[in-house]
């Protein structure tokens, strides 16, 4: 397998990458780890004319504490996040999520920014992004903006990211009491259902991925929760158009969403 012809440009700074994006327009794609883009290009499902490599831009792969938040650079690999002492200490649910992605080789190369921009409806991160009220910090030629998870994920492979924008970092409030549980697809290991639950004081928040065409915040569960995980989890798919595929029908997927919501709630400390 071999991709259709394209031009490759390595960007050495964010401003250079943005200028290139601006110049090449919709014909250009950014590559970081490449673990979503390269297979699609080889299968010729995606045929960009220009590929802009942002993988080696300095400063995009750091993990920092900033007050109540962690700021995760877009180029941080899943493995880096899964094993980062700071993440494990301040936001273990994110480390847990990162560790559940793919396999070790994929985690060593795939990046959080790439995964979020690709927006696979069965990707793992979106559940925790939503549950934690994280913000996706993006930059375009006209400036920076910060997008909330619920605005960011819009559909299958569809996000609020403009075609001239790139993800710079993810800003996530620290949370000591959170859990991500996942029912993996036996082949792809993507989430058939993935549930992130976070407890903050008296409140809880729930993000579900794999269930619908994009991850969502299970607000009906959050409202209904009064300490009874089972009763609240019955609302996991309220108002949601649940996906159906060869492995899991929408009925079964709905059931799994409830089971994993209940399990995640029960696992909260």
């Amino acid at each position: 397998m071999i991709p259709a012809k394209f031009e490759y440009i390595k960007a050495s700074s964010v401003s250079e990458a943005l200028a290139l994006l601006d110049k090449h327009g919709d014909d250009a794609q950014l590559i970081a780890g490449g673990h979503s883009l390269v297979p699609a290009m080889k299968l010729r499902l995606n045929q960009p004319g220009t590929v802009i490599d942002i993988g080696k831009i300095p400063g995009l792969n750091s993990i920092k504490e900033d007050g109540d938040d962690l700021v995760i650079g877009a180029n941080c690999t899943h493995h880096q996040i899964a094993t980062s002492p700071i993440v494990k200490q301040k936001l273990n649910v994110l480390a847990q999520t990162a560790k559940s992605i793919g396999d070790i080789q994929v985690r060593n190369k795939g990046t959080i920014g790439g995964s979020l921009a690709h927006a696979d409806p069965a990707a793992d991160y979106p559940a925790v992004i939503l549950a934690s009220d994280a913000k996706i910090e993006v930059e375009g030629i006209n400036g920076k903006r910060s997008i909330s998870g619920s605005d960011f994920f819009q559909g299958i492979y569809a996000t609020a990211l403009g075609s001239h924008e790139m993800i710079i970092a993810i800003r996530i409030p620290k949370a000591s009491n959170g859990v991500y549980l996942k029912f993996s697809h036996p082949a792809s290991r993507f989430a058939v259902v993935g549930c992130a639950a976070i407890k903050n004081g008296a409140g809880i928040s729930i993000g579900l991925t794999g269930v619908a065409d994009h991850a969502y915040r299970a607000s009906a569960v959050e409202r209904a929760y009064d300490g009874d995980a089972k009763a609240a989890s019955e609302h996991a798919v309220d108002g949601v158009a649940v996906m159906s595929d060869n492995f899991a029908s929408s009925e079964y997927r709905s059931h799994l969403a409830k089971v994993f919501t209940e399990r995640a709630l029960s696992a909260l400390g």
Partner: peptide, 23 residues
């Protein structure tokens, strides 16, 4: 427990990759 080739009604194989065919 895992494996099975599945075709849709048009004869398209919907388990034609390691993302769908479980081993």
């Amino acid at each position: 427990l895992l494996e099975g080739v599945v075709y849709d009604e048009n004869g398209q194989m919907i388990t034609g990759s390691y993302m769908d065919y479980a081993m």
